[in-house]
Design a protein around this nucleic acid. Sequence first.
DNA 1: CTGAAAGCGCTTACAG
DNA 2: CTGAAAGCGCTTACAG
Lengths: 328, 328
Amino acid sequence: MNIIDVAREAGVSKTTVSRVLTNSKLVKPETREKVLATIEKMGFIPNTSAQKLAGNRNYVIGIINSESINDPFYGYVEDQIAQECRKRGYGVIYTVTHNENIGCEREISMLYGKVDAFIILGNQGILEKDVEKVVRMQMPIALFKTDVEKEGAMSVDVDNVQGGYMAAKYLLEKGYKRIGYMHGSRTRDFREGNQREAGFMKAMQEAGREIAAHFYGTRSYSEAYYSTEQIILSGVDALFCETDMMAYGILQGMKEKEISIPHNIAVLGFDNAKFTNYETQIKLSTIGQPLEKMTGYMVEGLINMLEYGQKYEKTTLFETDLIEGETA
Amino acid sequence: MNIIDVAREAGVSKTTVSRVLTNSKLVKPETREKVLATIEKMGFIPNTSAQKLAGNRNYVIGIINSESINDPFYGYVEDQIAQECRKRGYGVIYTVTHNENIGCEREISMLYGKVDAFIILGNQGILEKDVEKVVRMQMPIALFKTDVEKEGAMSVDVDNVQGGYMAAKYLLEKGYKRIGYMHGSRTRDFREGNQREAGFMKAMQEAGREIAAHFYGTRSYSEAYYSTEQIILSGVDALFCETDMMAYGILQGMKEKEISIPHNIAVLGFDNAKFTNYETQIKLSTIGQPLEKMTGYMVEGLINMLEYGQKYEKTTLFETDLIEGETA
DNA sequence: CTGAAAGCGCTTACAG
DNA sequence: CTGAAAGCGCTTACAG
């Protein structure tokens, strides 16, 4: 069933049907009514591929999630993006990458021709040449927390170095004496972690202080949880965790060992991840990312690129906020 | 940039380029190499809308999530579906509905023409006429835990009545005397809950027993959590919760009140939801849905509909499993 | 193995 | 306000 069937049924030309579909002014109200009624009766759905092909905009933004469809942090970000897009009359479709470090060519083509612009989320195996391809096809693209810089692509992230600096400053000012550090990776393949660490160390050096003990949690709740004993034995009185997920694992472990937080050990996280299931536990102190501001800026920018051909500087870094909870 | 540019650059016809793109045997190996090299060099991405329009299959399945992009249960289901699809050579793109009870027309058209088949997840405001539209367009469609029956649409769910029955049976056989029931909704707008309750009550009646106390948690962790006191005061020795989310809220509450589980109060959930953040807590006893089996059956069926025009009976109900954890 | 041509379902100047 | 016609970028019989 296509626009021609509808036209025949309604007794008009397909041009007129198309005009009705695109809300053109060039249709007499009664004609419009008649066509609309026919469409409804026949249950016709316009083929958006054909619409897009014919040169029209689709009002759809494509999101490529390089992390996991199942990640609470990016799930929240996707929600925010969808809301922002909706406000401006754009729909959103998603896809997730293979996670095999082969880039996201396949995902780009799945969406290409269907969406007006791209947003890439996260940093798992996103290749510069993928982004370049999109730029060369003249499509607006924005990168969210992705470690790729490319002329013509907008990029949004948080200033991890400044955040790490803020974290150390806070713990130092609170007067903690033996500050421990939980890394998200042992092999330094975690870019955000490296940056957070760089900022943290800078503040420590400025204060002439050293890390009392290092721990490693692979960014996971359970790995961190199982370090509880070791952390207690190390004798630290404060612990900075490169991600909230790890901080939560530790809070759980400490609770079971009946260690008073922050009295015996203070815990400071990083991310301000929204884990709704934790809402009733102790409120984590953490370095927060202004996610609403970041997604708002990004979507607005992307649509400006799309509608007005506006250009954006490659990377915009947002400042982190200190979120004072009950754990440090 | 299009197939014609590539053809010109490579010194062949666009037919040949197209054949390379579709992996046709009808191309001399050297010609194929040359074309491939040109494509790579130019950074060409075929327009999938045009491919689809020209009658080719896209090997992409569209998923419409009616619940939330941010829901751990459906997130896990989406992961499973994506894996199954991938095994069979299909990619997956997602979109989420407005949640305004106006159906999912918009979402269907965002995907229509781009995907070869649809999967609808969940039951938030999905209208029969939406499904009917897809069926009328001759596209395969599968419904997962959606309360719509439609000739031509495949539908997969768990047998909630049987699951509720199983839940009551289990608690009765364990010898609990005062069994409480936590509903997911006060207004009975929660279809699954109603079915679970029907099965539960059947088993209770067969045993000549009654519910000792009723509680209401709107399927939420925190609502359930805040009922803890009330549950303790009610004097029940076992509690069935219509969803795991509520059961987890209660476990948290009980833990804080230092109520021993299941010694003082047994807790039995329903869903077998995968909340990874809870992995280190007590293992919940629950009525499980065989999600892997369900998604496997669904994807296989959908692709059979797609590739062989096979038909499926409208609804397939899967039996629940009793998952014996540590809480009942 | 290769290419010219028709057609997929739509939109949009252009002419009236 | 309406319609005939060209064109969007591809695929696939058909002919060679």
